[in-house]
Design a protein around this nucleic acid. Structure first.
Lengths: 205, 205, 205, 205
DNA sequence: TATGAATGAGTATTCATTCAT
DNA sequence: CATGAATGAATACTCATTCAT
């Protein structure tokens, strides 16, 4: 309520954004606190007023990113389109988000690696992932119910596989920038995901 | 001439293997040369007899892994099975290789991030990736020719998408070990990749 | 603005003095940064706040010493005594300075060796040396003009020779401390330098 | 007597020469045993067959140089010329030796600094120095006796001063190679040493 | 005897964190 | 609250010395 609290919260956010950007560009270990301070336009000591340490800063930066992603994902899911359209809409949103964040998304990958290594659970990350998978599962179930999708789909694993694909795609896009763009990959992926690669003119094999 | 008879090539390989393992577990920046030396059972100074510096050691370790992968991939492709079986065989090989390498594969991901960040081209990596994609493209083309696959497939991007999926899957498997196993994801992926998710009892949509 | 009020220039000087002393005692290569830090009463990291690296620290220390020498030399030269008295005064000043700096002067010798090896020009050093020689040349010229000195003197080389002698003398004094003192050598040198060693009772040879 | 002994001695000398050259170029601390081994054309381990350690190698190299110098000096002194000619001859020999050794002489300076720092007496060095001074003292005494030189000379300190001058000259010659050559300095030095700088047309001052 | 592969003690430098102002 | 000067733990890399062959 007090104006001070607002200020603090705002500054925390400012720093987290700066950290998000720098971590994405240089990687966690290669980033110096000085870099973050400079990027945020504050003194190095100030970082420690808002975050306990470098690790905590990483978590804060992560949270910033995930809040944005989660909001966007919800937007793509909470509307009245039919399930298949929602699925396409979600894909389009994800691809745009990833392309928009560009280097920043690398931060996400880096962080997943980092967490899994440290053995720390980062609940927020898992929640987001699970929420993402759950959203897809719901769409698949709705699609099956509506008769659009095959009844024999392995819902859970198909949803997991779908979610995983996105990270694989960004990964390659980032690591081999000379290769196909995110949208090209997404188009090809959606095509096979919906239709499969088998020829069915003569009926099912 | 040489007082101590040593198979330098063998020792280099021994060290590269150790490095591969340690880098995979701890990440490049978190790994100390001492860790690698201990893992390899040699003195720290010995590392520098065989590798110029830490970065060079990373490259050496990478090469070890990739040689293994490339050999395995070729084995999965060079046989007389029909294209679709080869595609399944390749997938099975990849999944098994990834599960077998486990933590080690993380090293691969880490390295791709590392390279893309450094801006260095690591030609060997790109070659492997391109060889992988090319192998898949060939299979798809063969499948189209044999009439098994849809004639309208976007070969290049579909191959890229397929290749990317693997890394996405390991990525999630490593980052969220509580989730589905590699094989479960692979089964679901292959199912949708071949058949799509659309219901076609009533004919094509 | 600045949280800790520090006179950075003063601290830089403090460190340079410490470095000067330690380098003189142990030599450049034998000196550890820790030694300098301890001698300066600061942490090792602090050295790097004020100097880029060990080499830079060496240059800084050198500058400290040379400023002192140059000031003293100017003092010995800028007065109204006749040229020969100035020459004696300069010699006395140099001998006293060298004896006073003692071990520290070794630093100067060490540094000259160091520079010439590195092939770097250290302009400050050369300037001081040239200024020293020039001062002597001026005295010699003045002495010739006043009729006190021989008209056929090779001014430039005699000045160079005179300047060189000082370093030779300290060199021996430092390397063979059991030998004659600086003042004893200086007395003998001045005697021969002024009068030569030839007997002239019977007239010039 | 046995040929082995001859071989060993020869090889020791070979190595010492190589060491002398490398130490002179790079300085003691900057020289690696590998450098010496390569320069000598032997394996690194072989150095330790002939010398206990790096320090011992330094001493050996020093001895090589000094033997050469001492022999030359004796040659310049042991003949039937009058004392003043011997003095000139000695100077000429020294200057030529120094110019000839060039970089190698730096080794001598470096070593004097090194010894004095270590606090070790290096008797051979002192003996050579003392022999040098003694030789000069004898010449001066002889010159006085023959009536060529002033009877009031401070023999000991003048000899010391004369010996010191050489090292000062090489020092400047090495450190400031743009300056006058050794011979130019030597000519100027001898001129003042013999005749002084005072004008005596009007008789002694 | 000669060698050079192996070693690990030693050191310059970096950078997260603290804390006096 | 904000700052940045100070710090020292941490770490890649070097090189004299050893010793198996």
């Amino acid at each position: 309520m007090s104006p001070k609290i607002v200020d603090k919260e705002e500054k925390r956010l400012l720093i987290a954004h700066a950290a998000f950007s720098v971590f994405g560009n240089k990687g966690f270990d290669r980033t110096r606190m000085d870099d973050v301070a400079t990027a945020a336009g504050v003194g190095k000591g100030t970082l420690y007023e808002y975050f306990d340490n470098k690790e905590d800063l990483l978590v804060g930066a992560m949270r910033v990113m995930m809040d944005g992603m989660t909001d966007g994902m919800r937007g793509a899911l909470e509307n009245d389109s039919p399930p298949l359209d929602k699925l396409r809409g979600l894909t389009v949103f994800m691809v745009e988000a990833m392309e928009h964040m560009g280097e920043g998304y690398r931060f996400f990958l880096e962080y997943m690696l980092h967490i899994s290594r440290a053995g720390n659970d980062f609940p927020i990350l898992k929640e987001m992932l699970l929420e993402f998978r759950k959203g897809i599962e719901d769409l698949l179930v709705a699609g099956v119910k509506s008769g659009d999708l095959r009844k024999d789909l392995d819902i859970v694993n198909t949803a997991a596989t779908f979610a995983a694909w996105f990270d694989g795609a960004v990964f390659h896009w980032i690591a081999v920038p000379q290769g196909p763009s995110m949208s090209e990959m997404a188009d090809a992926y959606m095509d096979t995901f919906f239709n499969g690669i088998l020829d069915r003119k003569g009926g099912r094999k």
